[in-house]
């Protein structure tokens, strides 16, 4: 009886084209097309995300400093460029280290890097980055488009009108682009997007100061998804990013 009533309500909503508000109108996860997802290229995380971040949605990687946000983003971009896609990074405060991107495997010729200015006032740099994001998303054709807000003061971020993110979502809806925000705290996920909250702890090898080296970062990721479609309250457990090749990642001559 209850099922009949639910079906009747859903049918009525569908007739009035209001079915987008229905939880069940979202595509079943088991039937999610792999091509509609952008893998993070971290197997455990991809398994938890059921394949990766959804295309056509606004997702976010949130966490404090040294929590591995940039590492994960560059890994995702490296995988995307290896598939032949092009990616874009709106670098609000010009923080990208090109050697790190190259060491992560990003094909630099397929990366559109839009550099903000560290010396500009944060609100102006943020305004320009949002305009640049809008231009890139409207142009289309990018597999991953990231907006780096990690070091932007929260006071400036909170001044962004909330409908900005709705507009961003409207632009990418139905496209093949996965838009990703890099933030220090969850900010503006779209209804179909995912929030990956990260916590990191550096790992070191060696005991003496001179023999000690930074070997990696232990990451813990917690996924927040719309209406718990991906068991949003469950942390995926500990994810260790282990750097075995000590010289290559940081690419320094010592």
């Amino acid at each position: 009886m209850a099922n009949h009533a639910l079906a009747a309500v859903e049918s009525a909503l569908r007739d009035r084209k209001l079915d987008r508000t229905l939880t069940t109108a979202l595509a079943p996860l088991e039937r999610m097309d792999p091509s509609a997802l952008v893998p993070m290229d971290v197997a455990a995380l991809d398994a938890c995300l059921r394949g990766g971040l959804p295309r056509g949605q606004l997702s976010e990687l949130a966490g404090p400093r040294s929590s591995g946000r940039m590492t994960l983003l560059l890994r995702m971009m490296a995988a995307a460029t290896a598939r032949g896609e092009i990616v874009a990074l709106m670098d609000t405060l010009d923080r990208l280290d090109v050697a790190s991107a190259a060491a992560a495997g990003v094909d630099l010729s397929r990366l559109l890097w839009i550099r903000g200015q560290d010396s500009a006032p944060a609100d102006r740099a943020l305004d320009r980055a949002l305009k640049a994001l809008n231009l890139v998303l409207q142009a289309g054709g990018f597999g991953v488009v990231a907006l780096d807000l990690a070091d932007v003061p929260l006071a400036a971020i909170r001044q962004i009108p909330f409908n900005t993110w709705m507009r961003v979502q409207r632009v990418i809806e139905g496209s093949d682009t996965a838009c990703v925000l890099i933030t220090s705290e969850p900010l503006a996920r779209s209804a179909g997007g995912l929030t990956v909250t990260l916590a990191g702890r550096p790992t070191w090898t060696g005991t003496s100061d001179r023999g000690r080296r930074l070997s990696g970062v232990d990451l813990r990721a917690r996924v927040v998804s719309p209406r718990k479609r991906i068991d949003g309250e469950v942390a995926i457990g500990a994810l260790t990013v282990d750097v075995t090749d000590r010289d290559a990642p940081i690419a320094r001559q010592r």
Partner: peptide
Amino acid sequence: ARFVTVKNVAVALRRFRH
């Protein structure tokens, strides 16, 4: 198993241009 290890990941640096 408690940890999943991903090897050969480059730890990224966020560089201050100044």
